[in-house]
Design a protein around this nucleic acid. Structure first.
Lengths: 100, 100
DNA sequence: GTTAAATGCAACCAGGAGGTTGCGTTATGT
DNA sequence: ACATAACGCAACCTCCTGGTTGCATTTAAC
């Protein structure tokens, strides 16, 4: 999932869809100075990572923002930050014990 | 920065260093079933992304957790989630207006 | 019913990422 | 002082990724 957002093109697409509005592939590839096929591949990657949702309507396939994985990413970052801070606390109390 | 955490090997190293303790390259490459050089490259990438800090001591170079970029990533995810939720709110009020 | 739009599929290509090996250099330990 | 540990640099290799092109297929529009 970090890998999915790691590519700048993909991050741009994802950012564009963050307003919640679903968009078709051709709409997304219009202002993405690259082939429709390339955009399609990126969309597939983002969908596989659980960041986007695809839903075929008529002859066009709409991709839309999907918030679940986003929450998971935030949870992971929070957890890492938490581990780090608690390590800091242990270090601090160790130093203070040493001073006492 | 998402790209830096996108590689599983790098994520593992980063996760390992999240306890705040600095570690030398050879220590890190001991249990990473891969060459020291490969680990070095990964560490350089993580450092360039601002996720780790390097500090040479004697003949060994110690890499340690660096929290700043982490906060930035969290801020970005928050911002995206915020944009999405406010879009939801607008949609909701639109529907309610329509009902009225 | 035909034309055109929106997409899917597959083959293909160039470049960069991840990894290794070999060798040189600096610091440590005894 | 000498052996060895920890590291840097550079060349090299392989494979995956990002991108393209060509063609087939489904669906809308008129």
């Amino acid at each position: 999932m970090f890998a999915a957002l790691g590519d700048p093109t993909r991050l741009a697409i994802f950012d564009r869809l963050a307003d919640g509005k679903p968009r078709s592939i051709s709409v997304l590839s219009d202002d993405a100075d690259m082939t429709r096929q390339a955009v399609t591949k990126h969309l597939r990657v983002l969908e596989a990572a659980g960041l986007l949702q695809n839903h075929r309507v008529g002859r066009e396939s709409q991709y839309a923002f999907c918030p679940e994985q986003l929450a998971e990413a935030r949870a992971y970052l929070d957890q890492v930050a938490g581990r780090w801070e608690s390590a800091l606390m242990r270090l601090k109390s160790f130093v203070e014990d040493d001073e006492a």
